[in-house]
Simulated scan of single mutants.
Amino acid sequence: MRQVEEAPLFGLANTPKPVAPKPHWQGHRDRLRTKLVERGASALEDYELLETLLFAFIPRRDVKPVSKALIARFGSLSGVLAARPADLVKVGGVGETVAAYLKATAEIGARASRETLQARTVISSWSALTDYVKKELQHEGREQFRVLFLDRKNQLIADEIMGHGTVDHAPVYPREIARRSLELQASSLILVHNHPSGDPTPSRADIDMTREIMDALDALDITVHDHLIAARSGVLSFRAQGLI
């Protein structure tokens, strides 16, 4: 009796399953990581550097549009890291977890800068000082007044906020600065505040307030080395402008 070969069920038994193509962004991630490792982080554009950071936080989607949208929304890479979580989550693809990780990354950078500054003689490390001030204050939305308290070797003892304010004013009390200087046994200090308007040009009130603080500290033999104003366009030095 002749054996009849059975036909495959529905004609699909021997049909290979189609292989899903890899998402286009998967290869892009590999290439970007290779570029970073082989050529260094400085070889990456700002949006590419932000992409590599987002890889860890957003594992299964193309993050290039998210990275570019963040920089477009906040103006720069530093602007992204300085942004408030409530503003970050307004960008498509950014949730509370990603916003939290971005803020943690920003704080790591700020603390690393502070450690670098603490290990050096502040007044002779102008680039380290201005980098630190810019990271801390250039994107701050409200005016903030800070004091860098220095020891006899002009090394940083503490960086403290001495006044919070509105978009154009932060109350400052010279006697409070003098009291805190004595508590920390500071020999000198540098005044720092920001201009949220983006223009670091000092106002008449800025100049008068600086003089009041210097007068309060003169009797204590505590020197004011400089007053720095941070803004998006840069950092202005009172001493370099001949105002101290």
Rank of each mutant, 00 (worst) to 15 (best):
I108W: 05
D215P: 00
A13E: 15
V91C: 03
G92C: 05
V172M: 08
I244V: 06
R84K: 07
V37C: 02
V224L: 05
L148G: 02
A158D: 14
P8K: 04
E96P: 05
N154I: 07
H225P: 02
I157W: 11
A104R: 15
P23H: 03
D226M: 06
A219D: 06
K135P: 00
E5W: 03
T201G: 04
R2Y: 08
V37F: 14
F74V: 06
E6K: 14
E115L: 15
P8M: 00
A231R: 07
S78A: 10
A7E: 14
H169D: 03
E140D: 06
G40T: 10
S113C: 11
P16K: 01
V80M: 05
T166V: 04
L189I: 11
E176F: 08
V235L: 08
K64Q: 15
G11D: 06
T105R: 12
P171R: 13
P59Q: 07
N14H: 06
L9V: 15
L184V: 07
I108G: 03
H193V: 02
I71W: 06
A56R: 15
P85N: 03
E183A: 10
G163V: 04
I58Y: 01
I58A: 01
V91F: 12
Q185W: 11
S233H: 02
A178V: 11
A20R: 08
P174T: 14
R73K: 14
L102G: 04
P174R: 12
D168G: 10
A20M: 07
N14E: 03
K35Q: 14
I157L: 12
H225M: 02
P16M: 10
S181R: 04
I213G: 08
R204N: 13
S237K: 13
F10W: 05
V66G: 01
Q241K: 13
S188M: 05
E140P: 00
